[in-house]
Amino acid sequence: MQYIVYCDESIKRGEYFSNFYGGSLVRSIHFNEVKSTLEQKKKELNINSEVKWQKVTSNYLDKYMSLIEVFFDFIKNDMVKIRIMFTHNLHEPIELSKTQRDNEYFLLYYQFFKHAFGLKYSNNTSNKISIYPFFDQLPDTKAKNQEFIDYIYNLQRTDVFESANLFFNSKDDIAEAKSHNHVILQCLDVVLGSMEFRLNEKHKIIPEGHKRRGKRTIAKEKLYKFINSQIRQIYPNFNIGESTGIQGVVENRWNHPYRHWKFISIDSRTNGSYVSKKKKVSPIHST
């Protein structure tokens, strides 16, 4: 058994929510079926280019819905697990060193990979399971990217991994991926992008000099609503802006096919400069 894990990230700073990370985990027994089915669906829909949230348009809306519906069929059957993590601008971490602030992106990414899937609870047998992570191309220097990969590799020496008999075959198995080669990563990008779009209320954006929202914004809102409806088939009344509950069963951090995690630092305070949605009265504009 292997776990193939795709990881992606979205914007670092949003109006209300920031630091968006997403992950998609597929077990090796399901991987070929998931990958080939999604690739075939793209061909049927005549989608010849990379699928991305930023490329959603009214012309491609129905095609994206059809592809994402297939993706969520796998999620509902627990053949794909999805995790989304973000922070809320109301909560501000305190007493961070300069090094911590400079490395915030990677530090949060590390926490996401280590904890979001509930890997600690994924294997209660004596059988070892190898992990193959694919990170969407990392944005920093080669040295910093490599340092991050080193930290990920050393996770196999932590109690989280040891308790579940998880390991990496080699450091080379921790790869940076070009998303246009990985359809599962592309679908993850759409789901992650839709959550950032809605949580930061980008569905309300009116371009400067216009009286109405643009066609692309309307198409994205429709796609978000479709994705939300798919999630609510799994969890009725799902709240996208809060951490998903575990219903009193800690193993559900792994068992659940779809979960959100609103990350709040242990040492945090209320951000006095944060302006809540309720207090905003001026229209949102965008160039």
Results as ranks from 00 to 15, higher is better:
251 E>I: 02
220 K>N: 04
229 S>Y: 02
210 H>F: 14
125 T>N: 06
232 R>I: 09
77 N>Y: 03
250 V>Q: 02
276 S>F: 06
22 G>D: 06
154 N>W: 08
190 V>E: 03
6 Y>N: 13
27 R>A: 15
79 M>R: 15
100 Q>G: 12
136 D>C: 08
278 K>I: 10
69 E>V: 06
87 T>D: 05
163 S>N: 11
275 V>L: 08
285 H>Q: 03
109 Y>D: 13
229 S>M: 02
158 T>M: 10
119 L>V: 01
255 N>V: 08
97 S>A: 04
240 I>S: 11
101 R>H: 12
203 H>I: 11
209 G>V: 14
218 I>Y: 04
231 I>R: 03
120 K>E: 02
17 F>T: 06
176 E>F: 09
91 H>E: 07
90 L>C: 08
121 Y>C: 06
65 M>I: 15
280 K>A: 03
265 S>Y: 08
80 V>F: 06
226 F>W: 00
282 S>C: 04
109 Y>T: 12
61 L>I: 13
209 G>Y: 08
198 R>A: 12
35 K>P: 05
48 N>I: 15
147 E>T: 10
260 H>N: 15
200 N>A: 03
141 T>D: 01
38 L>S: 09
102 D>F: 06
98 K>G: 09
215 K>N: 03
203 H>L: 10
61 L>K: 14
39 E>Q: 15
183 V>G: 11
38 L>V: 07
25 L>F: 01
250 V>N: 02
46 N>T: 13
85 M>W: 00
245 G>E: 07
165 N>F: 04
53 W>G: 07
90 L>E: 13
91 H>K: 08
71 F>A: 08
84 I>V: 10
201 E>H: 11
64 Y>G: 10
256 H>W: 08
279 K>P: 01
28 S>R: 07
183 V>H: 12
141 T>F: 02
154 N>H: 09
160 V>R: 14
154 N>G: 06
31 F>H: 10
129 I>N: 10
119 L>H: 00
184 I>F: 04
55 K>L: 03
147 E>S: 11
119 L>W: 01
219 A>E: 05
152 I>R: 05
199 L>R: 14
126 S>W: 04
26 V>P: 00
37 T>A: 10
38 L>A: 14
185 L>F: 03
250 V>A: 03
62 D>Q: 11
158 T>V: 12
183 V>D: 09
197 F>A: 02
228 N>W: 03
88 H>M: 05
39 E>V: 12
80 V>L: 10
17 F>G: 01
199 L>V: 13
181 N>V: 10
52 K>S: 08
250 V>T: 05
49 S>Y: 10
231 I>P: 00
16 Y>E: 08
46 N>F: 11
132 Y>V: 00
172 D>G: 12
222 K>A: 04
68 I>P: 01
201 E>D: 13
178 K>F: 13
53 W>N: 12
174 I>Y: 00
63 K>V: 11
41 K>I: 12
63 K>T: 09
221 E>F: 06
13 R>P: 05
161 F>P: 02
151 Y>T: 08
56 V>Y: 00
129 I>V: 15
233 Q>A: 12
129 I>S: 11
